[in-house]
């Protein structure tokens, strides 16, 4: 497969994965979040995650940052379309950035 063709197919597949993820990805906490709930006595190790479980976060002496698209959303009003747009945007940025940095690094070969 030619490089251009491989990149285009790869990008399309990646975007499709992202689109499917918006609709079917599990909303359960990930391993780190689940562990936080366990050690904060909100969840049993081998039990389900209660609907009202919430991770207590330390704020004192911790850095806080508001990202442009928190949690891969366009905020409350963005809805599913917003989520689709940001996942496609992120996927394209990842591809272009990797390609560009790779090219620049390669060009510096002496």
């Amino acid at each position: 497969m030619k490089s251009e063709q491989f990149i285009m197919i790869g990008l399309v597949v990646a975007i499709l994965i992202g689109i499917v993820a918006v609709f079917v990805a599990s909303g359960n906490p990930d391993g780190l979040e689940s562990t936080a709930l366990v050690v904060q006595d909100q969840k049993a190790l081998l039990g389900d995650t209660p609907d009202d479980a919430e991770i207590h976060e330390e704020e004192e002496g911790r850095f806080a940052y508001e990202s442009p698209f928190p949690d891969y959303t366009m905020g409350e009003d963005g809805g599913k379309m917003g989520e689709l747009a940001v996942i496609v945007l992120g996927t394209i940025i990842a591809l272009i950035l990797a390609f560009a940095i790779g090219k620049v690094a390669m060009a510096k070969k002496s």
């Binding site: 990646a14 990842a94 591809l95 990797a98």
Partner: peptide, 10 residues
């Protein structure tokens, strides 16, 4: 590298 980056992000 580019396709892996995009795929892993997604």
């Amino acid at each position: 590298v580019a396709v892996l980056s995009a795929g892993i992000f997604a």
